[in-house]
């Protein structure tokens, strides 16, 4: 709960700061907090990924992009009312939606009574792998992972197409 509150404070910082370097470092702190929360919520695999991806690689990429562009954000000139209004209306609708959501941490929710429990019960006899996340990721939902690897492949190809300096000289 304290970690969640800290995250909210960091996000307010991200909104307020004008210097983009500060914003990126705050984004890194935000990712670390997120990783700790995921660890508390028993999602160890996701926490490891978030710590290495969100706080590591994405910060490095953001900083190298910032080095190539401008350091400071321009002061806001146009009207701020409408974005705030849209955000608040969306937030109010979402808060209204939470009345239908189950309470935190109880066991008798729809998501625990369907396929999730089935994976936990069958993983050892089907695949012999202790870590259920790995067995679902690689075996039960292997096709999903294949599609996802293809997305990364496509993104990398796109970046090469956009940024790679070609050796042919323009005359």
């Amino acid at each position: 709960m304290i970690l969640l509150t800290l995250m909210a404070i960091v996000v307010i910082g991200i909104i307020r700061f004008k210097n983009l370097f500060n914003v990126i470092i705050l984004g890194s702190i935000y990712s670390f907090l997120m990783a700790s929360i995921l660890l508390v919520l028993d999602a160890v695999d996701v926490a490891l990924t978030e710590a290495s991806v969100g706080a590591g690689i994405s910060t490095v990429l953001m900083l190298s992009a910032l080095y190539l562009t401008k350091r400071n954000e321009n002061p806001i000139t146009h009207n701020q009312i409408w974005p705030l209004l849209i955000a608040l209306i969306t937030g109010a609708l979402l808060v209204f939606g939470t009345y239908g959501m189950p309470e935190f941490g109880i066991i008798n929710t729809p998501m625990h009574n369907h396929v999730g429990g089935e994976y936990l019960a069958r993983s050892i006899s089907d695949t012999g792998i202790e870590n259920v996340v790995t067995s679902v990721l690689a075996s039960y939902r292997g096709f999903d992972t294949l599609g996802e690897v293809t997305v990364i492949f496509t993104a990398a190809i796109g970046i090469i197409a956009i940024l790679k300096k070609t050796k042919t000289k323009v005359k």
């Binding site: 919520l41 028993d42 999602a43 695999d45 996701v46 990924t49 998501m111 625990h112 396929v115 999730g116 429990g117 994976y119 936990l120 259920v132 996340v133 679902v136 990721l137 939902r141 999903d144 992972t145 996802e148």
Partner: peptide, 12 residues
């Protein structure tokens, strides 16, 4: 155990 399915989805 906690539910593993959302972990897999979010990992990807």
């Amino acid at each position: 155990y906690s539910n593993p399915l959302p972990h897999v989805l979010i990992l990807t």
